[in-house]
């Protein structure tokens, strides 16, 4: 996919490459870069920079028998020793769900179980397990409806999987990601023609602004 027009912030690219994002953000960034050649290349470049840093980094002597121990461990597990092969080649990864999301929501968008939370708005919560301080959920919003607006209480990212919405930053369609800073506010409205299905990662509970949204907050849980 090459017609992506809204990309990750470069600081986010660096954080992802360094391994500094919470689970929900790691997943959503991986999903975007699975759909976006430009950001995938950018992460790749950042990783090259990390490799350069490793080359000039300090060293710490390893124990004298470290190599011998490692080879002994490899010899003890012949299945590892003989497991030197590339990934099995898949002919094609199927489905309209980006590959890094497939283990969480399956491979087809139309198989997702939605829970109606307000007129025109359905939600699907994703359980990441563990004690992640970030949360991940999907929204399915009917055409013409507003995406619930909120003052951002922390980092938030929204990745469009189907349909589109428009806000003051422009139109967001399949593959586009809104990687917003903490204080940016926006009022996305779903474009005519189709519902908008998106996946949202948030850092912590945020405050909704309007009355309707305040009512929604306990239900949507964002």
């Amino acid at each position: 996919m090459s017609n992506v027009s809204h990309h990750l912030d470069e600081a986010t690219i660096m954080r992802y490459a360094a391994g500094d994002l919470d689970e929900a953000f790691t997943v959503i960034v991986a999903a975007h870069i699975a759909m976006c050649d430009q950001c995938r290349q950018a992460v790749h470049d950042a990783e090259q920079l990390a490799g350069g840093l490793l080359d000039v980094a300090e060293t710490e002597a390893v124990s004298d028998d470290a190599f011998a121990n490692l080879m002994a461990a490899i010899d003890e597990k012949p299945e590892l020793a003989s497991n030197v092969h590339p990934f099995p080649k898949r002919n094609k990864i199927s489905g309209d769900v980006p590959f890094p999301l497939q283990r969480l929501i399956g491979s087809e968008l139309d198989q997702i179980q939605w829970k109606k939370v307000a007129p025109g708005i359905s939600k699907h919560a994703i359980d990441l397990g563990g004690d992640s301080s970030s949360s991940l959920f999907m929204l399915n919003i009917a055409e013409g409806h507003a995406v619930p607006e909120h003052g951002h209480g922390g980092m938030e990212m929204t990745l469009i999987l189907s349909g589109s919405y428009t806000d003051r930053y422009g139109q967001f369609a399949k593959g586009d990601i809104a990687d917003l800073d903490e204080h940016e506010e926006h009022q996305p409205i779903v474009d005519a023609g189709a519902p908008c299905i998106c996946i949202v990662a948030t850092e912590k509970p945020t405050k909704f602004k309007g009355i309707v949204e305040r009512l929604l907050q306990p239900i949507i849980g964002i």
């Binding site: 391994g19 991986a30 699975a34």
Partner: peptide, 9 residues
């Protein structure tokens, strides 16, 4: 508090 699985994907 994360898994490296998305990177592998």
């Amino acid at each position: 508090k994360a898994s490296s699985r998305p990177y592998d994907d």
